[in-house]
Design a protein around this nucleic acid. Sequence first.
DNA 1: GTTACCAAAATTGGCGCCAATCTTTACATG
DNA 2: CATGTAAAGATTGGCGCCAATTTTGGTAAC
Lengths: 218, 218
Amino acid sequence: MHKGPRREKRNDVADLIARDIQAGVHSRGAWLKQIDLQTHYGATRIEVRRALDRLVLRRLAQHEPNRGYRVYAPDENHTDQIRDVRVVLETAAAERVLETVDAVAIEDLRTLALAFADLLMTGTLLQQYEANLAFHHRMAQLCPNRELADLVLEYRGRGASAALTQWTTRARIEQSAREHMEMVEALAARDLSRLKRVVAAHIRQAEAGEIDAPSSAR
Amino acid sequence: MHKGPRREKRNDVADLIARDIQAGVHSRGAWLKQIDLQTHYGATRIEVRRALDRLVLRRLAQHEPNRGYRVYAPDENHTDQIRDVRVVLETAAAERVLETVDAVAIEDLRTLALAFADLLMTGTLLQQYEANLAFHHRMAQLCPNRELADLVLEYRGRGASAALTQWTTRARIEQSAREHMEMVEALAARDLSRLKRVVAAHIRQAEAGEIDAPSSAR
DNA sequence: GTTACCAAAATTGGCGCCAATCTTTACATG
DNA sequence: CATGTAAAGATTGGCGCCAATTTTGGTAAC
């Protein structure tokens, strides 16, 4: 387990630790000792240091000189703000997707949305997670503004992943699957306001009606 | 010169280099050689490396393994995309500013806008640049979503700075000053659509009429 | 004159070592 | 038994060294 693939450690270590922080493996306030991290993640000392430095920039850890790094679990306020930013970015991206997408790409997306829906019955959580990721990645790729698309994907990795925190009930996952389908339908119908509404609701994990005011998060 | 204050080198070196990149000291595409940087900024090798790593995360530099770091050099198409992202971010931020700003803050902004306008006659380009920066920094600070505000400021540093590339004529700078004032007026009048229009026009450096379609940039 | 190739120089980037600092333990003192 | 103090241990974090790689400069061959 401790010897994953060797490619691109440069980003990976920070992402792995970030994932584990959000999954609760490292409890908040706990010290992130460099020795533990290098043994646990199979990384070298320098990679660990770089990762810790990046976690500070992401506000997932804080640094106390000569003491070390400790987990700084994002407070509720902060995660709300990140979610708010995601709504801004993804609705803007969706708007640009809608303007340029063609029928082939829409069918492609529909296939991915259906694949996710199918896995609700038969798949493991990991498979569902990956199918969900595939759908959103494809959606981002359809955004003609690559810069915006990259930013969307970057911020998807920030807030706690939905698979761990928000897919609490089967009903909630099924709701996500329905929202995927509705995005595809809105794209096919070129219905911009509907698309933006469902994208925002999907991120906020709220009913589409509740999220009309794009301002609640402070 | 090479012995600045010793506090908090951890962030400072990256910020110093970032500032110089935006000021044009390091031309785009140029190699950021570690030895040059440590002599020029009076920093150690490790500080330079950390700074370079952070500049990559901020997308102000690119890393090529075993070659080094070079100043990020977006092509024209990419620059358009970054500008498009800035419109998305700053209009969203402006919307959130409008919802929470009070009369005192508006007067504060008006003072900064007037200070910029005054410098059009009397000030140097550098003073104008800094007054412009002060106005936009204050505007960002008024955004209750800190994450969004930080992202706005980060993206202001990407793309070429307006002072060097877009303030080509006196008329254009005066237009910028007028737009600052109009933002203040729109805030005071709680006129959201007007505010968004002028913010978008300000970024695109186009007349407010031309930019209604938020989609032109690919 | 141009191209191919090889050697030398320069640069990056990783690793180990060690000093500085903080924490813990042991001990002495009241 | 509590408390203050000093030594020992553990951890971080910086510095120098060196291998890997690329670029440069020079030389020979065509």
